[in-house]
């Protein structure tokens, strides 16, 4: 009860007129948008339009692109290999989300505690965030070498990069090792923002640790879960360096994803037109997925998890 009284107290002296004036002063002018708009137009929208144009041309990277209509698109949809590549990409995206999200939530909530040992361990755990992706991928590539790596003495890891399922697993492990700390950081911050009153109330009602986590923490993290998932999923769709350096799309093209296929088509085969078609598909798929997430999660309504408090 005392909590409720305290929180009501500061509301009283706030008069209406100054608040309105404040709102008018703070609303940004349309001009504020200009720098962002110029950057976005120059480095995102304009190249996007160019890629879309190139997808209707036959271009080897040199000279003038020749217009070929929908040839590249027809060729792509008739090519069986592209379906393999697409399903590999989606499978990898799914696996990354399924492994990273629960681990990040658990670690994040754990790290949100005020205990000293947690702070020290979290600081250590966030170290991979400081390393470059290329360095991590190369490091693990050597680590998984069957003759000089850790697999030398540990049979399940020995030939991990040499089998289809093993190579996929290796990518999920390495990507997880690198990115779980980032998402943990998001969840840690979000978990610290959950008002303590909720837990106090639940405790009085007799809820144990598990019930508090399930009925308070998780629902309160809803918006963070959506943010983190969107970053994770769209990021997974476009992973390049990790796979390129860790497995090179192998063994035998079994871990080749859409971004790798795009790279191979452009810089190995010099088919920039066809590669642009793949790039366009990637943009469409990634945009569609993030729109779906926003639509079906209710994120677009911007409803606060603190309503009614």
């Amino acid at each position: 009860m005392s909590v409720a009284l305290e929180s009501r107290a500061p509301v009283r002296p706030a008069p209406a007129p100054p608040r309105r004036r404040q709102a008018r002063v703070n609303r940004p002018n349309a001009l504020y948008l200009l720098p962002a708009l110029v950057f976005f137009g120059l480095f995102a929208a304009f190249p996007l339009v160019l890629v879309l144009y190139l997808s209707f041309t036959d271009w080897n990277g040199i000279g003038t692109p020749g217009f070929v209509g929908v040839d590249n698109w027809v060729r792509m949809f008739e090519n069986e290999a592209i379906w393999d590549v697409t399903s590999t990409t989606l499978l990898l995206t799914g696996l990354c989300w399924v492994t990273q999200t629960p681990l990040s939530i658990l670690l994040g909530v754990w790290a949100a505690g005020a205990q000293r040992n947690r702070a020290v361990l979290s600081a250590l755990f966030f170290l991979p965030l400081l390393l470059s992706t290329a360095a991590i991928a190369l490091l693990y590539n050597r680590l998984f070498d069957p003759y000089v790596g850790i697999g030398r003495g540990f049979e399940p890891l020995r030939n991990i990069l040499g089998t289809t399922s093993g190579a996929l697993t290796a990518i999920v492990i390495v990507v997880g090792w690198q990115f779980i700390p980032f998402h943990t950081l998001l969840y840690q911050a979000a978990a610290r923002n959950i008002p303590k009153v909720l837990y106090d109330a639940a405790y009085i009602d007799g809820a144990g640790g598990w019930h508090q986590f399930w009925y308070i923490t998780l629902p309160q993290l809803k918006n963070t879960i959506i943010t983190s998932s969107t970053i994770m999923i769209v990021g997974s769709l476009t992973y390049f360096e990790t796979i390129f350096l860790l497995t090179n799309g192998g063994p035998a093209a079994s871990t080749r994803t859409l971004p790798l296929e795009m790279y191979f088509r452009s810089f190995r085969s010099y088919e920039f037109g066809y590669a642009s078609t793949i790039a366009s598909v990637l943009v469409i798929v990634a945009t569609a997925i993030s729109l779906l997430i926003v639509r079906f999660s209710g994120f677009g309504k911007m409803r606060s998890t603190l309503e009614g408090l």
Binding site: D145, Y147, R158, N159, L161, T163
Partner: peptide, 22 residues
């Protein structure tokens, strides 16, 4: 052998194998 698909050229893995007599 049975793990050749895991060996990358850049790590000099194959060259080490023959140099070390494996």
């Amino acid at each position: 052998g049975d793990s050749y698909a895991s060996v990358r050229w850049d790590g000099a893995g194959a060259s080490n194998l023959i140099a070390q007599g494996q």
